[in-house]
Amino acid sequence: MNRRIRSAFAVALTATLIATVPQAPAQAQDEHAKPSVISLPDGFQPEGIAAAGTYAYFGSRATGAIHRADLISGEAEQLSPATGTPSLGLKVDPLGRLFVSGGTAGDARVIDTRTGDVLARYQFASAPTFVNDVVLTREAAYFTDSNKPVLYRLPLGRDGALPPADGFTTIPLTGAYQQIGTGVNLNGIAQTPDGEALIVVQSNTGTLFRVDPATGVSTTVDVPGYTFTNGDGLLLVGRTLYVVQNRLNQIAVVELNTAGTAGTVTGTITDQDFDVPTTVAMALGRLYLPNARFTTPPTPTTPYTVVAVRPL
């Protein structure tokens, strides 16, 4: 066999071997590369989550510290130090700014995700107050208050310019929504699929409401045969609304109409690693949820994790 024939044979044999060796699908390889459970610091007591690219941000309801986790490596580090007040619902915008709900402090902070610096702070309310969650639209950031039947609107100017410290408005809710008792009422918040209104969940009744952000008028979202008991964080992807039901350790999956006036529950997502998850963010094709572990007495050594699941 001459050298040219031997070379051609070697190339053909190599190609045949490559073709016949089983190759893991790209998606499977990608899934294997990303951890399904990420550890947060012991004693952290997470509540909110926001995601951007390959990173997720978590707030501590105990100290207000903000941690950033690499969703590929699973490594986490502190971005912003403890404030002594809670950091609850989080959202990050395309400018790399993290909007943080301040819980019992009645405030919100905006943090630079590159430096951890606080860019602005807004004092919405005084006790009793529980600024719980936030959603970002093109024009504003909207915050819920679990102790008051209102939304707080933080307008965003040209190129996302932040308003001055007193540049927010309070929107009283009217219509179908009614405040019930002193427990957690308003909780998660999202936009409707058409972007014209907002959707909020009332945790203690398990009801979804559509809210006109210009007037505060609310109507009940018609979801036949389902009550969102312990409804917490909301996430809208297209026309699919993910509703975290914290103490039920599940996510209800709702297919909404375009206006967000009605929907159908198409399934639920559970996982053996759920331990009272509270909020949810989408990243790298998966849903990430921090385990708040409300049913576990918190100590400085109590472990906390973030769980990734596949969406429906």
Rank of each mutant, 00 (worst) to 15 (best):
I199L: 15
Q191E: 14
G160P: 11
I199G: 06
N204R: 02
N132Y: 03
E139M: 01
Y226N: 14
P224T: 14
N185C: 05
L186W: 02
P164G: 11
L198G: 04
T169Y: 00
Y226L: 11
F209S: 00
V135N: 10
N187L: 02
T137L: 07
I171S: 01
T169A: 12
F168Y: 13
V223L: 13
D194I: 10
D159A: 15
V200W: 11
A197R: 12
A190C: 14
Y152P: 04
V223M: 12
L154W: 08
G160L: 10
S203K: 01
V211F: 02
T192S: 15
A165W: 03
G183K: 02
V201A: 02
A214P: 00
P164L: 09
A190H: 10
T215L: 02
T205Q: 08
I199V: 14
N132C: 04
R138M: 06
G216Y: 06
V131G: 09
P224W: 13
T182M: 02
T205I: 08
S218M: 01
L136V: 07
V223W: 11
V221W: 13
L136N: 10
V221S: 12
R153F: 00
G181V: 00
T170C: 04
G175V: 09
L162S: 07
D145W: 02
T174Q: 05
V211N: 06
T144R: 03
T215C: 04
T182A: 14
T215M: 04
A165D: 13
S146H: 04
R158D: 11
I199M: 06
L198K: 08
A197I: 03
S218C: 04
P193M: 12
A165F: 08
Q202N: 13
A197S: 15
L173D: 06
D222Y: 07
V217M: 01
V200L: 10
L173T: 08
L208P: 12
L156Q: 03
Y177E: 03
N147D: 04
Y152G: 02
L156E: 07
I189V: 15
T182Y: 05
T219V: 10
T137D: 07
G195V: 12
T192F: 11
T215K: 04
G216D: 05
T219P: 03
Q178Y: 00
L162H: 07
P155Y: 06
R210V: 01
T170Q: 13
N132E: 14
E196L: 10
G183H: 00
L208N: 12
Q202F: 05
G167H: 07
V150S: 06
V223F: 10
P172F: 02
P193I: 13
L136D: 06
G183E: 08
Q179F: 00
Q178M: 05
Y177F: 15
T227V: 15
Y142Q: 07
Q191S: 14
T227Q: 15
T227G: 14
S218I: 04
N185D: 01
D145C: 03
Q178P: 00
V223R: 11
